[in-house]
Design a protein around this nucleic acid. Structure first.
Lengths: 268, 268
DNA sequence: TTGCTCCTCACGTCACGTGAGGTGGC
DNA sequence: TTGCTCCTCACGTCACGTGAGGTGGC
């Protein structure tokens, strides 16, 4: 018979944990003094406690440990739970390694002393209906003209869309003969004759995003940060870049807000 | 201005999380309607929220994220926190990989259908003072005789020790010319002349342990399970084996309880 | 008598998720 | 009026840890 402190020292399981296991019925003391409430354990309880500790160390919750202890005789159940745990742990390791890559990217950025700090966030984007104009531009800066044409057409047909967004269709970055699409989010229909296109912008499951805040002239910094990040974290581009204008600048464009979105896929 | 639901959809951060960040002061809405209590966010808050999400994804707690956001201008602090996080994540990965090895060991045991199930637990053991007799035995089963001699000597000198334990000094397992030590735990002194030895059994930081419950004849199974486990999980033996007798059998030794302890070290 | 060990509450942890119950705007 | 969105509590999660306040045995 061991008092709880002795049993704790013997097994290296804390007194608090032993009391917890008692409370939840995982390991009841062999006997309890009805006067003092003292818990007494015996050495024949050691195998059970060791089994609890061992299963816990494999990553099972106490509830699962309880199930496994009660279903002592079902090795098939143990097997399937072990296989599932194995998958979970592998996923966990992958996630931690991705995290490590992100941390290393950050550290490298710090060392390069890149002044502008961008925070890359991976998220999903739902499908949206858009109305747009698409054309070849002499350069990226000519996008304003395309938007003016788009809005002139929209006004003519009495359509008003919400957010402005640009889609750059070239697979590589270039600054001449740029294939660009100026769009607004809208459910409206367009005349079949007109130059306007109404279509669904597809959903993207994994999108690397960066928000640019400030003058549009420095938007290239954000692009660059994003592309670096994508490479450093083991992804590749997987679709056309989108730029969503979230807020027009009020004071000479210096406080415009735009989100750049790159569809990405893991390198295999 | 976005209502909380729109801001949530835009950023893929749940409404509940946004309210939580408000409550703890991590991201206050740009304005709150005093009538309805509605929270309104602006797109210029996006960079801050993205930074929160990005730092959280690196594994920082919200409290740490808050510190990093406030100390915006201290890249040195960020650097040291990143380095520390890096260490933590690496340790985490190592731990998960060890867990994976333990799961695989279990699965292999299951497939081999080893009937006797032993749960190996790794723990530390403190230093203890013992009184013992050491000798060369013709085989392991002769240990009983050594214990009888030990106890005869102890009685003669009026010493009573507590737990019985055996130390097998041979680096390899053998069953002839066995170098064994029979001991009891005791602080007492012994006459210098006598055959008794009083010494400190050193503490061991990492000890692989298994509890054997039942007849001593099958104790070999536990040994074998332990040695397999040690090999499969990337350890090596690092000192003499100890066997601690926790409970003498009451009914013909069939319910004896003994713990086998092997000091181990990680393979480098 | 003084330590030491044991006991039972009750609350905290961490980042939200899950209702319950109610209100405001189209 | 009906949905939908928003609000504020209050409680739950998981495996214990941390006191507070009190008792029992040497």
């Amino acid at each position: 018979m061991f008092k709880i402190g002795d049993f704790s020292r013997l097994t290296q399981v804390t007194v608090k944990a032993l009391r917890h296991y008692d409370r939840i019925g995982l390991l009841k003391p062999a006997s309890i003094d009805p006067e003092s409430g003292y818990r007494y354990y015996t050495s024949s309880q050691l195998p059970r406690l060791n089994r609890i500790v061992a299963l816990k160390d494999l990553g099972f919750s106490l509830e699962q440990v309880g199930q496994l202890l009660d279903a002592e005789l079902a090795p098939e159940q143990l097997r399937s739970m072990l296989l599932q745990k194995q998958d979970e742990v592998r996923e966990q390791i992958d996630a931690e390694q991705a995290r490590l890559a992100r941390i290393e990217t950050r550290l490298r950025q710090l060392e390069e002393g890149s002044a502008a700090r961008y925070d890359v966030v991976v998220k999903s984007v739902e499908a949206q209906r858009i109305i747009s104009l698409r054309g070849l531009l002499p350069g990226r800066s000519a996008i304003g003209q395309l938007f003016r044409e788009l809005h002139a057409n929209l006004r003519r047909h009495g359509i008003n869309g919400t957010t402005n967004l640009t889609i750059w269709h070239d697979a590589d970055y270039r600054d001449e003969e740029v294939d660009a699409e100026a769009a607004v989010v809208s459910d409206a229909r367009v005349p079949e004759s007109g130059p306007l296109i109404a279509r669904e912008l597809p959903a993207v499951a994994t999108m690397a995003c960066v928000v640019h805040h400030g003058s549009p002239e420095t938007i290239g910094d954000g692009c660059q940060a994003l592309l670096q990040w994508i490479e450093a974290n083991g992804y590749r581009l997987d679709g056309p870049e989108r730029v969503v204008l979230l807020q027009r600048g009020k004071a000479g464009w210096n406080d415009a807000v735009a989100e750049m979105q790159y569809p990405i896929a893991a390198l295999t």
